[in-house]
Deep mutational scan, measured.
Amino acid sequence: VSFKITLTSDPRLPYKVLSVPESTPFTAVLKFAAEEFKVPAATSAIITNDGIGINPAQTAGNVFLKHGSELRII
């Protein structure tokens, strides 16, 4: 599955597209996205474009099915 993750704390709204296997734990996606944007993973969260928080204790495939591919990291 592929996710387009936007960094909301930067006024330029940079984004990265990450492709991972469906079975990947979403905690790993969060950690990798945080490292890519050089923000601390421990204090970061991934939310939907509607501002709904995503529980990272599920697979990337589940997140994709529930929330789609466009996400934000805060």
Rank of each mutant, 00 (worst) to 15 (best):
A60M: 02
V1D: 05
F64N: 05
S69L: 05
A42T: 08
H67V: 06
N55G: 05
P14Y: 05
Y15N: 07
E36Q: 06
V1L: 03
D50L: 05
L71S: 01
T6K: 05
A34G: 03
S23V: 11
A41I: 09
F64P: 01
I47Q: 15
E70V: 05
G53S: 14
F26A: 14
P40W: 01
S19F: 05
S23G: 12
H67G: 02
A41Q: 11
S2A: 05
I46G: 01
A45Q: 15
G53N: 12
V39Q: 09
P25F: 12
S19V: 13
V17G: 05
A42H: 05
L71K: 01
R72T: 06
F32I: 05
L18Q: 05
E36W: 06
T59C: 08
G51C: 03
Y15D: 07
E36T: 07
G53I: 14
D50T: 08
V39D: 02
I54V: 06
S69I: 03
T6I: 04
T24S: 09
I54K: 00
D10G: 06
L71I: 00
P56N: 13
L7E: 04
K38W: 03
I74E: 15
L13V: 11
R72M: 05
G68V: 01
S2I: 06
R72F: 06
G61S: 09
S2E: 06
V63C: 09
N55A: 14
T8H: 14
T48S: 14
S23Y: 08
G51K: 04
E70K: 10
T24I: 13
K16H: 13
N62E: 13
L71M: 05
V17I: 05
P21I: 11
L71E: 00
S44Q: 00
K66S: 11
P14I: 10
T8N: 12
V20I: 11
A33D: 02
F26M: 15
V39R: 07
V20T: 08
E35A: 11
F26H: 00
P25N: 14
T6L: 04
V1S: 02
F37W: 06
G68N: 03
F64H: 05
E70W: 03
V63N: 01
S9F: 07
V17H: 06
V29F: 08
S2D: 14
V20H: 01
L30C: 15
L7K: 15
N55C: 07
T48C: 08
P40G: 04
L7T: 05
S2R: 08
G61T: 05
A34E: 09
S44F: 06
G68C: 01
H67Q: 06
Q58E: 12
E36F: 10
T48R: 05
T43A: 09
A60K: 00
A60W: 00
V17E: 15
T48P: 11
P11Y: 03
A28R: 12
L13E: 13
T24N: 10
A28I: 05
S2F: 07
A45P: 03
P40E: 12
F3P: 00
H67W: 05
A57W: 08
I54F: 01
A33T: 11
A60I: 00
D10N: 09
K38D: 11
L7Y: 12
I52N: 12
K38R: 13
K16P: 01
L71P: 01
A33G: 01
L71V: 00
P21L: 13
A57D: 12
